[in-house]
């Protein structure tokens, strides 16, 4: 899976795409790790082009959140479709990872 990355201030904005499930979650994980630099102060993962995420993909989000937390970097998710937003709500993941409606809101939150 290709993850494109832009930088805004100290934050890296990573954009995933398509379905994230057990068939590509490993690749999703390594691609996501590859776009994050040690110097980044925050990571915003944009779900605009993601259509579906399974529990294997959620596990990667959790691993990333814990990894970033231990290295003192902020982490936010944004621009999810309704069904993915629902998955994060039902699973309770939105209690431990911040989720924003838009990329600009997410950037503002992690830059604050």
């Amino acid at each position: 899976m290709e993850i494109s990355a832009d930088r805004d201030g100290g934050a890296v904005i990573a954009r995933a795409n398509g379905r994230i499930d057990s068939s590509n979650s490993r690749e999703f994980h390594s691609s996501l790790e590859a776009v994050i630099d040690e110097d980044d102060s925050a990571v915003v993962l944009d779900f605009e082009d993601v259509s579906y995420i399974s529990s294997a993909g959620m596990r990667v989000i959790l691993l990333t959140a814990k990894g970033l937390q231990s290295s003192g970097m902020k982490f936010a998710l944004c621009s999810m479709n309704d069904s993915i937003r629902e998955v994060f709500k039902i699973s309770g993941f939105d209690k431990i990872i911040q989720i924003h409606g838009s990329q600009s809101d997410a950037l503002a939150a992690v830059s604050a």
């Binding site: 309770g92 993941f93 209690k95 431990i96």
Partner: peptide
């Protein structure tokens, strides 16, 4: 009941 997946926190 506003729970959370088990094993997370």
């Amino acid at each position: 009941t506003d729970g959370l997946a088990l094993g997370v926190l």
